[in-house]
């Protein structure tokens, strides 16, 4: 458990601002809030069977962060036989934070960054919990 990290895997859906928000929240966690404890992996690489990516996922905890109800990140991880320890959808965070609306895909704007921070806060708590207590 000591050597394990928590991988945050966003869908990075390019068609929607929610995909960009999830990506931004991932970076907020792995670069600012929990560097060294959390990391990410390229979803496409993983889905296409890259051995290094698969090894990374199977030997660490995973949190999937999807942009919309289609849940592509979660589906792609499950297709490899792994169930993420936690799964989130960006849109659900928006429902709880209606004032934090992303403005676009390339530039998520002030609202998007605020939403990203809210998501990152929750996920960073999950990181601590998983590293402390493992999967429940």
């Amino acid at each position: 458990m000591k050597d394990k990290k928590v991988l945050i895997i966003p869908c990075s859906g390019i068609g929607k601002s929610l995909g960009s928000v999830g990506r931004d929240a991932t970076y907020e966690v792995i670069e600012n809030l929990k560097p060294g404890k959390a990391d990410t992996v390229c979803l496409a690489l993983l889905t296409l069977g890259d051995e290094e990516a698969k090894q990374k996922v199977t030997s660490n905890y995973c949190i999937s962060l999807d942009g919309c109800p289609k849940k592509c990140a979660r589906k792609n991880i499950e297709a490899l036989g792994k169930e993420p320890e936690k799964s989130y959808r960006t849109i659900d965070f928006f429902k709880d934070n209606p004032g934090k609306k992303p403005q676009g895909i390339v530039d998520i704007g002030e609202g998007g960054r605020a939403l990203s921070k809210s998501i990152a806060k929750v996920i960073s708590e999950d990181v601590d919990d998983l590293l402390e207590n493992g999967r429940r």
Binding site: C11, S12, G13, I14, G15, G19, L43, A44, T47, L48, K70, C72, A73, K75, N76, A79, I105, V106
Partner: peptide, 29 residues
């Protein structure tokens, strides 16, 4: 790669292009 693609889609060639969402594509879209 994302930023460049969106620039083409929205500004440079909006009429001639469409984007394909790779995660959705991989998930069976």
């Amino acid at each position: 790669s994302r930023i460049a693609t969106m620039k083409v889609l929205n500004k440079l060639r909006p009429q001639q292009t469409s984007t394909i969402c790779l995660p959705l594509f991989l998930a069976g879209g």
